[in-house]
Simulated scan of single mutants.
Amino acid sequence: MANERLREALLRNGLDLDHVARATGVDPKTVERWITKGRIPYPRHRHTIASMVRETENYLWPDAVATERKAEIAESEVVKVYPHRNNIPADLWDRLLNDATEHIEVLSLAALFLVERPTFAKELRTKAENGTRVRLLFGDPTAREAARRSEEEQLGKGTVAARIRNALAFVRPLAEVPGIEVRLHKTTLYNSVFRFDDEMIVNTHVYGFPGAHAPALHLRRLSAGDLFETYSESLETVWAGAKRATF
Rank of each mutant, 00 (worst) to 15 (best):
M1I: 09
N3K: 14
N3I: 03
E4K: 15
R7L: 12
N13Q: 14
N13Y: 00
D18M: 13
D18L: 11
H19T: 00
H19L: 05
V20K: 04
R22N: 09
G25R: 11
G25W: 12
G25A: 03
V26A: 00
K29F: 06
T30L: 02
E32Y: 09
R33V: 00
R33Q: 10
I35L: 06
I35T: 07
T36W: 11
R44Y: 10
H45G: 01
T48Y: 01
S51D: 10
R54T: 10
T56Q: 07
A64Q: 06
V65I: 15
T67D: 15
K70E: 08
K70N: 14
A71H: 14
E77D: 13
V81Y: 14
P83D: 09
H84N: 14
I88A: 04
D91K: 06
D94N: 14
R95A: 12
D99V: 01
E105T: 07
S108R: 04
S108Y: 08
A111L: 01
L112K: 01
V115R: 06
K127E: 07
E129V: 01
E129A: 00
N130I: 02
G131I: 08
T132R: 13
L136D: 06
L137P: 07
G139I: 00
G139T: 00
G139Y: 11
A146I: 08
S150P: 11
E151K: 02
E152K: 09
E153N: 07
E153K: 02
L155Y: 10
G158K: 01
R165Y: 06
N166C: 00
A169K: 10
F170D: 08
R172W: 03
L174A: 04
V177G: 02
V177K: 03
V177I: 08
G179W: 03
E181H: 06
Y190Q: 09
Y190C: 10
F194T: 04
D198V: 06
D198S: 01
M200R: 05
I201V: 15
N203G: 08
Y207N: 11
P210A: 13
G211W: 10
A216K: 05
A216L: 10
H218W: 12
G225A: 08
F228K: 09
T230N: 14
L235H: 14
G241M: 06
G241R: 12
F247W: 12
F247P: 12
F247A: 05
F247E: 08
